[in-house]
């Protein structure tokens, strides 16, 4: 159904965003000898095998001990290393919040916390592994940069970009095969929102996997004569407030879309910006105060209201409130 729509971005290939991370890490490692990798027994899942193979002396298997991994990474920055930690998003945040808070964020350490299998699209493993609160936890921490790229290419570019950024970063990506619709040679600018599609009636601010859904939603809205602007917010913190305010000054209403709890996510951050500067009608697409469950990624996206259809519905609602 998506392919029959006249979307402004298209794809010929699908790939998981975690592979973008693995390939980006390898590139970053080749560029900068200070880059080191740590993994908590998930080398295959995180796609860190190529880095491990090429740089065995700069790769550390930590075992199933995420708290220790965060502390080790913080310690390795002392001596100039740029550690990339790899585990699932759940174990990268909730399990080790205090370690990140004290040893990494408060201590201002140059650690890159790289988190795969975020959100419901993890699929069949169910809610114990489908974290939907991680963006909130990480964005609350002072000094922390929070990035959630949208496809393989953007994740690869983001991984390479954070290696050159001095300071703690949370990089969030996922498990499922996903459309590759952004440029393979893109320049990734941390903190700079990307206006992908110009529009005038409503703005869709999307992050992560839901950027593709936003692209589809734009095409669906266009069929109904509604002009939607699509902005890719890959960096949730620091938030590109200027781009957000510039867009809503034109469109007058907006929708946020994320594979995350509504509480504490991207939508919250945008709403704060709007309330302070230009309160316009806003609607939210995300998980509404619920845990996930087992199922295929697509079934879960539908059940939890994260599809293009949901963005369309909320866009119309925001428009009606103008």
């Amino acid at each position: 159904m998506e392919k029959t729509l006249n979307t402004k971005f298209t794809y010929t290939e699908k790939k998981d965003t975690r592979s973008g991370f693995g390939d980006g890490l390898l590139e970053a490692g080749r560029k900068n000898p200070e880059v080191v990798g740590l993994c908590a027994d998930l080398i295959g899942s995180l796609k860190m095998g190529a880095f491990q193979k090429e740089f065995p002396d700069r790769f550390f298997q930590v075992g199933i001990a995420e708290a220790n991994m965060m502390g080790l990474a913080a310690g390795m920055t002392i001596g100039g290393k740029i550690p990339f930690t790899g585990t699932f998003a759940n174990f990268s945040t909730g399990r080790v919040y205090d370690q990140i808070r004290q040893s990494i964020a408060y201590s201002g350490k140059n650690v890159k916390i790289c988190a795969s299998h975020a959100g419901v699209t993890l699929g069949e493993d169910g809610a114990t592994h489908q974290i939907l609160e991680d963006i909130g936890m990480m964005k609350m921490l002072p000094h922390m940069t929070v990035i959630n790229p949208c496809d393989y290419n953007q994740t690869k570019a983001a991984t390479m970009a954070i290696a050159e950024h001095d300071g703690p970063v949370y990089l969030r990506f996922g498990r499922p095969s996903w459309p590759i619709f952004t440029d393979s040679n893109q320049k990734f600018e941390i903190g700079k929102a990307w206006k992908m599609i110009d529009g005038k009636d409503v703005t869709i601010f999307a992050t992560g996997h839901l950027v593709w859904e936003a692209v589809v939603a734009e095409a669906m809205l266009a069929e109904e004569g509604i002009s939607a602007e699509v902005i890719n917010i890959h960096t949730i913190k620091p938030l590109d407030e200027e781009a957000i305010l510039e867009s809503v000054a034109k469109t007058g209403c907006c929708v946020s879309a994320e594979e995350h709890q509504l509480n504490g996510g991207l939508g919250d951050s945008i709403a704060q910006t709007l309330v302070r500067n230009n309160p316009v009608p806003m609607e939210f697409v995300g998980v509404d105060d619920s845990f996930g469950e087992s199922g295929t990624p697509m079934d879960l996206m539908k059940k939890y209201g994260l599809k293009a259809e949901n963005i369309v519905e909320k866009a119309k609602k925001a428009l009606a409130r103008k």
Partner: peptide, 8 residues
């Protein structure tokens, strides 16, 4: 943990 990281 931090000390071990620094040692490595």
């Amino acid at each position: 943990s931090a000390g071990i990281g620094a040692a490595q």
